[in-house]
Each structure stands twice: as structure tokens, then as C-alpha cells.
Amino acid sequence: MSGNAFLVDTTKCSGCRACQVACKQWNNLPAEKTKFFAGPEYTNPAELSAITFNHVKFFPVDMSNKEKPVWTIMHKKCYHCSIANCERVCPEKAIYKLEGWTVIDQDRCIGCGACVNACVYHVPHVLEEDLSQYGTEQPLRKYKSYKCHACTVNKRAVPACAKVCPMGALSYGPRHSLIKNAQERLEKVKGDFPKASIYGLDEFGGLGVITILKDAPETYGLPVNPKPIDITKIKEIHDTYALLDLFTFRNKMLKKAAYKLSNKMNV
């Protein structure tokens, strides 16, 4: 993996959620209807969705040292895996790499949900309704999969989330230099957080989002040593789908059904 990446530093994040709002603004995404808080502390909504491309999660505070409470707040969006499960499983090649980022071509997307099931980080989501007044280049459409595209669609030089972060908790730049920064930072914060770690250096061939954590990744529900989906298994599904697709007459609903069937036939 080369090129640019994001660095999320949870030792600096204050949870202002400017990233979450800026993303909605620059991608013209609707607000979710929420009530109170959907997750721990101020988390809202609970998770990423087809209309929420980045999201801030508040973990419960750790008061074991009353003079130094630890409250982890973490920015989350698509990790942009080098070897991306979503890209591998997509039967329509609607998911592809653009300048190193994993992006979805909604014109090709049939809404089959393969990417939704394949992503261990629960990032992509299929939109269940037409939202014609929202979106940027194209309106948001029913049965299309959506997620963070690193602001490649709205063509920002620096993605909106990184641009607005006031704390330096979310930065954007050449991946190799961000990794260097992360390693230096890790050394600095080890005094306060002896179990601090860096996530994203090697997972899925290296992630496009590197995260500095105050503890081990599993504390924050991040999968340790995740394995990319087996290509041979996918190939079987894709071969079946290629056959069935001959009878779908480019109808997206039929294509979706064909994919479901191919998936079932190869379990």
C-alpha cells in the first residue's frame, strides 16, 4: 500500500464530532432520526450506515485511576483495506480502487449486499430508500451500497473530516510519513498508556486508516489478525453468478436475486 492515508489519534480526540458533521455536509447526506443516544455515552447514531459515512464512537470511561480518567473516543469510517474483502466479493466489480482508496460505483452496484456481509468492520450499507434531494454528483438511490470514498467523489484535496479536525486527532497525508508520526506518538503516549498500540499497519495488506489506540485493538472491538476472504471460494460464487447473469437481462432486481442464489449454491 502506498499513497495517502488517514491517521486517527485517539489520545488526542476530544469527541467534538466535527468530522461526522463535515462529512454529512460535503457529501450532502441527510441526518439520521435519533432519540437520546444510540450507543455508549454520547454516541449517535449507533453505527455507520448508508447515510453516515463516518462516525464517532464514545467508549465508557475507565475510572480505575480517579486522577487520570481514561475516556476513549474513536473516529471510524471505511478503513480502505489494501486487500479489500468488499472489492473481492462484489460480483459486479462495482467496488474498485481509485487513487488507492476503495470506492463504490453506484451505477454498477446491484445492492446485493455482498460487501455488507464481507466487511469485518461493518462499513458499507445498502440504502433502503431513494433520497433524491441528497448526494453530490448523483442523488442517493435505493438498493445501492454507500460508504466513505475518502472525498474522491467530491474531489476535495484534503478530505472534509481531516480538514476540520481541530485537535490534530485526524490527519491526512502520505502513508509512510503518517506511520512514522504514529510510531513517534506511540512512544510518547506509552507513559500514560502502557498498552497503547497502532492499528492498521498490516491488517488486510495495510489499511488506509491508521489508528493510535490507548489499549490493545480488541479492547475497542477491532479484529486482530483478520484474514482476507478466500479468493477460491469467491471465485466459485462469481462463476455461478456469471452463468445465472446470462438470464437477468441487465435487470438489477434479477441480478440481485441471481447473486443471492449463487451465494446459496456455493455455501
Binding site: R17, Q20, V21, K24, Q25, P30, A31, E32, K33, T34, K35, F36, F37, Y42, N44, P45
Partner: peptide
């Protein structure tokens, strides 16, 4: 503002 109301929608 809907984006802000999404984050803190209620008195708590």
C-alpha cells in the same frame, strides 16, 4: 440544524 440535532436530539 438536522446534522447537529442528530448528534444530541434530546434534553438529558
Amino acid at each position: 440544524l438536522p446534522w447537529l440535532a442528530e448528534l444530541v436530539p434530546d434534553m438529558f
